[in-house]
Design a protein around this nucleic acid. Structure first.
Lengths: 228, 228
DNA sequence: AGCAAGTATTCTGTATGCAGCATAATTTGA
DNA sequence: TCAAATTATGCTGCATACAGAATACTTGCT
């Protein structure tokens, strides 16, 4: 119908921004961030009354948000006992990274084939900025940009479903990954793998990118495994 | 009362599975089935009061279930307007099948490498039963078993996260797939592809299975595309 | 003192009530 | 007759209230 297909995935910006955010949405985002940031310890129970008062909302939207978090796999609901922040075992981590690897490889291959030059250049820019943060040892910002790059590669595929699945899984282990890159040699290793990924992407070599992503995810598993 | 302090840390596995189901869960399942079966037409609005009365539950658990369905991608929530059953465009379908392909390929590869002989034999049994249903042209039962086989292959990988993601995506297009196999030649094609998959699986040839799954999913796209 | 049983409290699960927004219907003006 | 504005209705979003279950605590008994 409309020919808005300049860069794939830009359709959302064309729409008049929906400003009506429901409380449920607001709470959901806040809670998710709090869990990822570790303000709720894994295994900890979420007291509806308490958290609701803390956020200044009633229990209703809070409960709805918790149900959504459960469906995302960040919390676990035990009937008549409440919700607890999900604890991840080493096996969970392995399984998540396995799927994440497959998703990112698909994203990478598709991005090499279909992404615009501008999109790839933007990712390269992110990478360069990240390398600068690595030189200055700004670990938190580095990590954020790192995540952003992974997401950007997947987003460059133009596959919204893929983006959604990837985001869901990434959220589950975001915290672990952050902790996992502690130690200079681990960090250096991760950086080297990223270099390889970006090189493959700029060459639009899908197979090479998939291979690099695979290596990176396998290494991530090794790096992160210790924190469990 | 219980002596759970024996093995510290492993307590989670020792718990007997609590089967108590909340109303929210019950409603969620019913609603999901209703949408997949097409009892709610795509684009149709879900009237909380009406559906609640229909199911015999109050609006509260119903609302929570709807939020979960939204997070699964089966419905869309428009603030202050309610929830509508999601409509899938041809592009959505393409994207979903793309991801589904990657997931099933991963599942297939892993299953070839790790599944027990018994698990593979069980899948083969499912396949044989399905072939019998094909001969007798029992389309509905054939379809159910077809879905079950796909799920079983993924499940045989032993990766729970993969199973979960796969189930979520499969639910979104289950209905389309059912309609898509109409017409004898399409059906025959799908059957042939399944034969190929099972053969690769019994040989534990991961690459062959992945290739067969890829072909099957690509064909599925072609078969289903017409119904949109 | 230690254990068990009963009680009390706290929290979840569900229902109901109220306010605001969106849409539909109706009326009035040109 | 048609269009625009205003009213009216119905539904969603949120909060509060109530019932049942689970846990913590207290008290009595061995």
């Amino acid at each position: 119908m409309t020919s808005e297909a300049g860069t794939s995935g830009e359709a959302a910006e064309a729409y008049p921004r929906i400003q009506r955010r429901t409380l449920h949405d607001e709470v959901l985002e806040r809670l998710r961030d709090m869990i990822i940031e570790g303000r709720f310890a894994p295994g900890q129970r979420i007291n509806e009354g308490l958290v609701g008062a803390q956020l200044g909302v009633s229990r209703t939207p809070l409960r709805e948000a918790i149900k959504t978090l459960a469906s995302e796999g960040l919390v676990e609901i035990q009937p008549a006992k409440g919700a607890i922040v999900r604890k991840f075992t080493a096996q969970d981590l392995l399984q998540i990274l396995e799927v994440l690897k497959a998703l990112e490889q698909l994203g990478g291959r598709t991005a090499c084939a279909q992404a615009s030059d501008a999109a790839i250049a933007a990712i390269k820019a992110l990478h360069d900025a990240m390398m600068e943060l690595y030189r200055t040892r700004n670990r938190l910002e580095y990590f954020k940009l790192n995540q952003a790059i992974h997401s950007a590669v997947v987003a460059a595929s133009g596959n919204d479903v893929l983006v959604e699945m990837h985001a869901t899984l990434q959220a589950r282990i975001k915290r672990l990954r952050f902790i996992g890159n502690e130690g200079p040699e681990k960090w250096a290793g991760a950086v080297a793998e990223h270099e390889e990924m970006i090189e493959a992407l700029t060459k639009r070599d899908g197979e090479a990118l998939a291979a690099a992503i695979g290596k990176h995810m396998d290494s991530t598993l090794v790096r992160v495994r210790g924190v469990l």
